[in-house]
Structure formats: C-alpha cells, structure tokens
Amino acid sequence: MANALRLMARKALNSFITILLVIVLNFVLFRAMPGSPMMNLRSNPALSESFKLKMIDEFGLDQPMYVQFIEYVKHVLTLDFGYSFINPLTPALDLIMDNMVWTLILVGASSIFMIVIGMTIGIISAWKRGSKFDTGSLAFSLFFYAMPTFWLAMMLIVIFAIELDWLPPNSALPYGERLELSWESFKGLLYHLTLPAISLTIGSIAAFSLIMRGSLIDVMTEDYITTAKAKGLSDANMLKHHAVPNAMLPMVALIAIDIAFVVGGAFQVEYVFDYPGVGWLAVDATFKHDYPVLECAFFIIALAVVLANLIADTLLVYMDPRIKEG
C-alpha cells in the first residue's frame, strides 16, 4: 500500500506541475509575448479608458514582468482572469461557468455511450478476430475516425434535421427557454441534445473501440490465457475473468488521454450546432478578440482535463494488483 501511496503522490505532483506550466504558457501567450493582447491593452481602441485602468491596476500591468507574473499567478489561483472585453462588467469566469454546464452535459451524456458501445465493439472484434464482424467494425471505426467531427455533424443535420425533420438542427434548448427542474424542460433538453450527442458519440467511438481491440488482442497472447484455455475454461468464462479485466488497465489509461480528443470533438459539435458550451464561447471570443474569456476558457479546460487524468490514474492504481501489492 505504501507503494501505491508514493505513486499517487508522484502523480498528484506531476499534475500540479502541469497546471503550473499551463499558467506559464498562458502568461507568455497572453501577456508576456511582444504583441500579445495584454501588451497591446493600452492601444486597444475597443476598450474604454476606465476599463483599461481597472485592468492595469488589478493585474499590475505597469509593473516589471516578474511582478506581473507573481500577480498573475495569485489571480489565477483564485480563478480571477479579469473582466470580459465585450461585457466589461462581467468577470470572464462567470461567462465560462455558465457555458461549462452545457459542455459537461454534452460530453457527459456522449461519453457514457461512446465508452460502452466502443468497448463492446472492441471486445467482440478482438474475440472474433479476423471474422466478418471484426473486419466490418474495423472499417466502420476507421471510416469515422478519419472523418472531421464537424462534417459528420453537418451530415447528420442534413439527414435527421432537414430531410427527415425529426430533430432540431441547432441550440441546446427551445428558443428563449432556460433549463428548469421540470419534465417539460427536460424533454426540451433531450430533444435538442440528441443530435449533438449522437454526432459526438459516433465521431469518438473509434478511439475507444480500436484501443480496446488492440489491448485485448495483446492480452490474449499472454501465457495465462493459454493456461486458462488448457484448463478447459469456456470462452465466455475466460473472456470475463481473465482477458477483459487485464485489458481494462491500458484501456483506463487511454480513456484519460482520449478525454482531450473527445473535448476537441465537442468543440466542433458545439460550433456546428450553435450549442452554448465552452468551445462555442472560445471560438466566439477568438473572433471578438475577447482575450480574458479565451484565456480563462483555456485554463479551465486544461484544469478540468488534468484533474480527469489524475482521477483516471488513481483508478488505475487501485485496479492494478501489481502496483497495490508490489
């Protein structure tokens, strides 16, 4: 157990360092690089004088660079990124948090489906390696893997929203409505969420099915599987108790890495569907030159993904007997 704790401490430290590096990257890109948005703050014609003074005062933008950096770290650790350039009275973080809920709903709902369906396809493919199902699912997976998610979303809109007219082509809720705790509101949400969620799920399934297949094929050449076969275990028994649990380890590790891939897909889906998530907001902020919002969105996404990775790593430590007892 001491071993596991030491490993966890190390992982946690690494995650912390990654976050610190993200802060440094943010600082360099948005504030320290010549021509960066904050360097050009004073000459930005879109902002009022009082707003500029407020930002300069709050972040010490008239101080030497190292003082600015220390100020910046202090602010970031309290998640303070200043105010939106477009809505000077709204903190950037508030805008992000409003939209974060929607991204979490989209990514959460799709993730469950893509993991379950992807893994099932992967397991059957690996088990029936070389069969028609395997070839078919491999072709299917690679085909959708090669497809830009935004294009897939557009094609699904063509089929299900325009030609068949089953589902709405955009937004997260019926026009002008807010999410409430009622059956009606939930139905509206479901009605609008289905197509974006299907787009994201199909767009990302391949990442999971291909990995599961590869990892299970790897496991099935191990000696203990041969032993299990020699013992005369049934296929289902062997798959359930020997092969799949061992193939799950690399799978969990890779799910963590895939989070980054899925979020990338979610951005595209949000953009195509005008779905008010963080990705949509980030693109919108880019075109409106609303840098504090972009900066904040970037940091929050990085933070969320690093934490998700840390959780996956923790799971891995508890699942892997070699680490727990070794």
């Binding site: 990654t18 993200v22 890495i257 989070i259 980054a260 891939f261 979020v263 990338g264 951005f267 595209q268 990705g279 980030a282 969105a297 970037f298 996404i301 990085a302 993904v305 690093v306 990775n309």
Partner: peptide
Amino acid sequence: FLVIPWLA
C-alpha cells in the same frame, strides 16, 4: 501539450 485538448 499531450493533455490539453488539441483544438483548444
């Protein structure tokens, strides 16, 4: 660079 979503 590995962890942060590529599109972001």
